[in-house]
Simulated assay, not measured.
Amino acid sequence: MTTVPVQRSENGSHQEQRGAVAALHQELVRYGLVTWTAGNVSERVPGADLFVIKGSGVSYDGLSWEGITVCDLDGEVVDGVRAPSSDTAAHAYVYRHLPEVNGVVHMHSPYATAWSARGEAIPCVLTAMADEFGGPIPVGPFALIGDDSIGQGIVATLAGQRSPAVLMRNHGVFTIGDSARSAVKAAVMCEDVARTVHLSRQLGAPLPIAQADIDSLYERYQNVYGQR
């Protein structure tokens, strides 16, 4: 029996957003968070039950809007000629179940993924970590790629957490945000603190930060820090 390839069409919808998401992938390269074609950024399309995501196995070199595919919230292709990321079902599950989330990033960055391989949360022992994550970076369950099992683990693990990042056991990192850009920022910060806490543990036991101080730092950073 001959398998007929799925025919995809390109109507060029959402070009501006797809171009912006394509450009954000270069931040993953810039900060050394991805290897070869692994990793992806997605973003919800405003006002529609759609999101855009990097094509599966598409190179970061010269990535343009055409390498980004439009999908519905069931992960089905709506527009584009590239098969979407193998993580599409996970992203779609997050968007279906967390309406406040507008951006998702996945990566296998070295230090954070090393913590995930140990199945160990990253403890909140840095003020920068309290600022961005409001506590430890939690570990989600092991799940195979291909369906929405990973998405289920992400949503369940982040429930009640302030952290925009989760370490999926034996896999890698997923981050969320109110935009793709904020999810990319969380990804950059996650790898940074994973590395620093790892280095600290080589010298001895990191000193804990009191919960009241973590709460204060988080409140200041989220509501006072930066330009308003």
Rank of each mutant, 00 (worst) to 15 (best):
Arg118Trp: 08
Ala92Asn: 08
Val34Trp: 08
Leu33Ser: 07
Pro206His: 12
Arg162Val: 01
Thr69Trp: 02
His97Ile: 04
Pro138Met: 01
Phe174Val: 04
Arg201Leu: 06
Met107Asp: 12
Gln161Trp: 00
His106Tyr: 06
Asp61Gln: 14
Ile209Gly: 06
Pro208Met: 12
Arg201Ser: 14
Gly75Phe: 02
Ile176Glu: 03
Glu219Tyr: 08
Arg8Thr: 07
Pro84Met: 11
Val104Lys: 11
Ala48Lys: 15
Pro46Tyr: 10
Asp178Ser: 13
Gly62Met: 14
Ile145Lys: 03
His106Gln: 13
Leu144Gly: 11
Leu167Val: 11
Ala114Phe: 01
Arg8Ala: 07
Glu10Val: 00
Ile53Ala: 09
Ser13Ala: 10
Glu10Pro: 01
Tyr111Arg: 09
Arg195Val: 03
Ser85Met: 12
Pro206Ala: 13
Arg96Tyr: 04
Glu16Ser: 13
Gly226Trp: 14
Ser163Asp: 04
Ala83Asn: 13
Phe142Ala: 05
Thr35Asp: 10
Trp65Arg: 08
Val58Cys: 10
Val41Lys: 04
Val78Trp: 04
Ala92Gly: 05
Tyr95Gln: 08
Pro164Thr: 06
Ala38Thr: 12
Ala22Arg: 03
His97Phe: 05
Asn40Lys: 08
Ala114Cys: 05
Ala83Lys: 15
Glu191Trp: 02
Gly67Cys: 06
Arg201Phe: 03
Tyr31Asp: 07
Val193Tyr: 10
Gly146Glu: 08
Ile137Thr: 03
Val77Gly: 04
Glu76Leu: 04
Thr196Leu: 15
Ala159Gly: 02
Ser163Leu: 02
His97Tyr: 05
Ser59His: 11
Ser86Glu: 08
Val21His: 07
Asp72Ile: 11
Gly55Ser: 00
Val188Gly: 01
Arg195Leu: 13
Gly153Ala: 11
Gly135Ser: 10
Pro208Cys: 09
Ala20His: 12
Gly80Phe: 04
Cys190Leu: 02
Phe142Met: 05
Ser13Met: 07
Pro141Leu: 00
Asp87Ser: 02
Ala180Thr: 11
Val224Cys: 01
Leu167Trp: 13
Gly12Thr: 05
Asp61His: 12
Leu144Ile: 08
Asn102Ser: 13
Gly57Ala: 01
Gln152Val: 12
Ala165Leu: 11
Leu73Trp: 00
Ala212Trp: 01
Val29Asn: 06
Leu28Cys: 06
Gly57Thr: 01
Val70Phe: 00
Gly134Ser: 09
Glu132Pro: 00
Asp49Thr: 06
Ala23Met: 11
His171Asp: 03
Pro99Cys: 01
Ser149Thr: 13
Leu50Arg: 14
Pro141Ile: 00
Leu24Glu: 12
Asn11Arg: 15
Asp147Cys: 08
Pro141Gly: 06
Arg220Ile: 00
Glu219Asp: 14
Ser56Lys: 09
Glu27Ala: 03
Lys54Glu: 06
Ala117Tyr: 10
Ile68Arg: 08
Arg228Phe: 13
His108Ile: 09
Ala92Leu: 10
Ala205Glu: 15
Ala186Phe: 04
Ser85Leu: 12
Thr196Val: 15
Pro136Lys: 05
Ser9Asn: 07
Gly103Ser: 12
Ser116Tyr: 00
Arg118His: 11
Arg201Met: 15
Pro136Glu: 15
Ile154Arg: 10
Met107Asn: 15
Gln222Phe: 01
Gln15Cys: 01
Pro141Ala: 13
Val45Pro: 03
Cys71Arg: 00
Gly103Tyr: 10
Gly75Thr: 05
Gln26Val: 02
Gly160Ala: 09
Ala20Ile: 06
Gly12Val: 03
Val45Phe: 05
Gly55Lys: 00
Arg96His: 03
